[in-house]
């Protein structure tokens, strides 16, 4: 403030006149017809775009759904081979979906679709659990982990296979600690813990329905 007043003593600040409003803008603000044109044009563009998108969606949706289904089914067959998978109805807390695996007419265990939290976002995975509550396999279907770091866990089937045979008999699976221990990958601790949490959720969900 003091600096300003000093300046104004030396050379009086020119009095500010309000900037002249552009005439066109004032007119548009009041002319209802013009507002109608603005809204109408936008509405028209949106309508045409929406129609086109609907058409494209009609073509692509079946293919996208089929690809997703094939991927999940392949992952399910990998973690727990069976003749059929029946969806378990009702609440399955902690997992996205739970399937009862049927092999030769008899139940062969469960397959759980889990969405665990990794270091960069969700890790979608499929976990197979046999009748005794032990893991038969883990497969990651979708993730956004950092290349060359998180992928050392989620893209390395050898690491994921270390879960095979683990169960909740000795409590929750813990990473690099405890008695029911899963050895994580160094440098990718958060991802390791995320995947372990997913396996824990699957085991807990299976216990809930058994």
């Amino acid at each position: 403030m003091s600096k300003n007043s000093k300046n104004s003593v030396k050379e009086p600040v020119e009095e500010r006149t309000p900037a002249p409003q552009p005439k066109a803008l004032n007119q548009t603000a009041i002319d209802p017809k013009y507002i109608g044109r603005l809204a109408g044009t936008l509405l028209g563009i949106c309508l045409v775009t929406a129609l086109l998108l609907g058409a494209v969606n009609q073509v692509t949706k079946p293919r996208i759904d089929a690809a997703l289904k094939a991927k999940t089914e392949a992952a399910m067959a990998q973690v727990l081979p069976a003749d059929a998978y029946e969806k378990v109805e009702g609440e399955t807390p902690g997992v996205t979906a739970l399937y009862r695996a049927i092999s030769g007419g008899a139940p062969a265990g469960f397959v759980a679709e889990v969405s665990a939290t990794g270091s960069q976002g969700a890790i979608d995975m499929v976990v197979g659990v046999d009748g005794s509550g032990a893991v038969t396999g883990v497969s990651v279907t979708k993730h956004s982990e950092t290349k060359n770091i998180g992928t050392k866990v989620v893209s390395d089937q050898g690491v994921l296979d270390r879960f095979i045979g683990m169960s909740h008999a000795g409590g929750d699976i813990t990473v690099n600690a405890g008695t029911n221990r899963f050895d994580g990958v160094s440098g990718a601790t958060v991802t390791s813990k995320g995947v372990a949490a997913g396996v824990n959720a699957a085991l807990a969900a299976v216990r809930g329905v058994q």
């Binding site: 603005l38 044009t41 936008l42 563009i45 998108l53 494209v56 692509t60």
Partner: peptide
């Protein structure tokens, strides 16, 4: 010449978003 000056950015975004969504869907499918 159709898009009024005042709503041009909104109109552009709708056009662009439409094409992006189409390309996204086509990529996912094919």
């Amino acid at each position: 010449r159709v898009i009024p000056q005042q709503v041009r950015i909104a109109a552009y975004i709708v056009v662009i978003a439409g094409f992006v969504t189409m390309v996204d869907l086509l990529l996912q499918a094919f």
